[in-house]
Structure formats: C-alpha cells, structure tokens
C-alpha cells in the first residue's frame, strides 16, 4: 500500500518536471502577449537537439566528462528551442501572422524535424540510446537519497533538472513580479499600446520573452529524453501529448509560475492515476478506460477555467492582449 503510493509519487514528480519546464516557458511567452501553441514542437526540437548533442559527445569524445556532456546538451536543447521561438516571433511579431495558426504549424514542424533527424540516429533499429548522457543527467545530485528512507526516496532521488525546474519557477516568479523587467513585460502582454507609450521596446520584449520562453520549454523535451526516458530516442509521439499538457498547465496555474510547481506534480499524479489508484483501492480498471483516465488533467484545467471565469477576478485572467499582434500606427 505505502510502497504503491511512493511509487506513484516517484513517477509523478519526474513527469511533472517535464511539463513544468514546458509551462514555465509558455508562461513567460504568454506574459508578453504571444500565444505560442508550438510548445509540443519546441519540446521536440529541444529533446532532439539535446539528445543528438549528448549522443555525439559520448560516442566521439575520447574521455567523456559528465559535466561537459550536461552543459553541451543543455545548451544545444536551449538553442534549438529558442530558434523555434525565433521562427514564431519573426512570423507573428514582425510579419504579424496569426498566432494560433503559426503555433500549430510550429508544432507540426518541430515534430517533423525531430523525427526526420531521428531517422539517421535510429539507423533502421527501433531505438537509439545514450547511456553516458543518461547517467550524467539522472545522477542523484542531492545527498541522502538513500539514507533518509521514504523522504529521500520521494524527494531526493532525482537528477538535477528536477530541482532546477523548481528553482527556475521561483526565479521566474521573482522576475515577473518583483523586477522592473517583469513589470515592463507584463505591461507588454496586458496593453502593448500603453507599454509603447511608456517608452518600452515592445517588439524587443516580445522577441526576447518568446525566444527565452521557447528555450525553457525545450528543456522539458531534453529532460524527457535524457532522464525520464532513460536516454533513449525512439519515434514515439509521447512528447506531443506532454506539450499539450504543458499548455493546459499554463491555464491551470492562471499564469503563475509558483502554482506551476504543485500544479505540475498534481498533473503527474492525475496522469498516472490509472496505474496506481486501482491497486490502492483494490479494483481493476479496464484497459479501454486508460485513455479516459489520462484525460483528467485536461478536465481539471477546464474546471479551473470555468471557476476563474465565474470569479471574474482580474488578476486571474490571461494577459489582456494575448494572441493579438501589435502595430503602433494602427488606427
């Protein structure tokens, strides 16, 4: 019973970490008024670039160093994802293309690029693996994972990216709410004309927030491949589902990174509910129902959306100009 519960949490926390990265990046993007629905594609780009980098490094370096491996993979994942964000920014901010269409196209694009590139890694086999990179990422960085019993098992037994996600959420919260840059960014997303009149470089803010946001989202893809999926690249479409969960999580958290920390783990618990809850309750659940149960995070998001809409509290609403292109001389 207890073991079952522990196993559930140990499953949920890494799962939550993937979507926490995705949603933090998307939150940052959306705070600038850009609705980037390309998150799944961007997570693919990040995952693929990170994996490719780690794979090449460990197979070609004479004496692979874990730290260098992690650093290179992180940089590659961030850069590739940020590039996805740059494409989105150029199309929607500079060319003022429709954000929804562009985002969805970016999702397809990212998936396509990653799966196409993946073909060369797979080399006709079912999967490709990077065990050294996986070990570097999954290394239990905190002491006491084994010596502190249940607590250590649940909270201390993960690779560094799990903790980095939490730290990043706190930093993001601080930047958005306590700094001048954050204030300016939120103004851009709420009312770009006002921000512009206040002398804020709206275009620059939108570009930077979207690119950095995409970079952060991409780390989710990296974490999925090199840690969560044990350093294995195959052609599964799992990342796409995770990307959409990340978008749902942004709404669930009402655009607050701090809510993201517990929200992501809650999503993880709900997503894996089908595997652990029946055992806990001593019932069996038909395999047909698994997909239905996995829908719960989306259902919860819809409930949150309804509750927030009913409350009409202005602070909980999406950035007021979300999804709308800004052009100064429009009249």
């Amino acid at each position: 019973m207890l073991n079952n519960l522990i196993a559930w949490l140990i499953r949920a926390i890494p799962f939550g970490t993937i979507i926490l990265y995705g949603s933090m990046g998307e939150t940052l993007t959306e705070k600038s008024g850009n609705l980037n629905l390309g998150v799944p594609g961007i997570m693919y780009l990040g995952g693929y670039a990170g994996y490719l980098c780690g794979y090449l490094y460990e197979n070609h370096a004479a004496n692979p160093n874990a730290f260098v491996c992690v650093l290179l993979a992180l940089l590659a994942a961030f850069a590739a994802s940020a590039l996805g964000g740059l494409i989105f920014s150029f199309l929607t901010i500079t060319l003022r293309a429709n954000q929804n269409v562009t985002g969805l196209a970016l999702t397809t694009f990212g998936m396509g690029v990653a799966n196409f590139g993946g073909k060369f890694l797979l080399n006709e086999s079912g999967y490709s693996s990077a065990p050294f990179s996986n070990a570097a990422f999954a290394y239990k960085i905190l002491p006491g994972a084994d010596s502190t019993g249940i607590f250590g098992k649940i909270f201390l037994s993960y690779g560094f990216l799990v903790y980095m996600a939490i730290i990043m959420a706190v930093i993001l919260h601080f930047v958005l709410n306590r700094t001048r840059v954050g204030l300016n960014l939120r103004a851009v997303g709420e009312n770009p004309a006002t921000a512009d009149a206040a002398g804020i470089h709206v275009t620059l803010y939108k570009y930077l927030a979207t690119c950095i946001g995409a970079g952060i989202s991409g780390l989710g893809g990296l974490y999925y491949i090199l840690d969560y999926n044990n350093g294995i690249w195959n052609t599964s479409d799992q990342i796409e589902a995770l990307g959409w969960l990340a978008v749902a999580l942004v709404i669930f958290t009402t655009w607050r990174p701090l809510n993201g920390i517990w929200g992501a783990y809650l999503f993880g618990v709900l997503y894996w509910l089908y595997q652990y809850l029946p055992n806990l309750l001593g019932i069996t659940i038909s395999t047909y129902a698994i997909d239905l149960v996995q829908m719960i995070p989306y259902m919860v998001t819809i409930v949150v959306l309804i509750v927030v809409s009913l409350h009409k509290k202005r602070e909980n609403q999406p950035p007021a100009s979300l999804g709308i292109a800004y052009f100064r001389e429009e009249r």
Binding site: L183, R186, A187, E190, N191, T194, R314, E315, Q317
Partner: peptide, 9 residues
C-alpha cells in the same frame, strides 16, 4: 484621450 494605463496594475 483613451488612457494608456494597464488595468491590472
């Protein structure tokens, strides 16, 4: 004429 203010600030 149309105020340039952010409502939630």
């Amino acid at each position: 004429q149309h105020f340039k203010l952010v409502d939630v600030f």
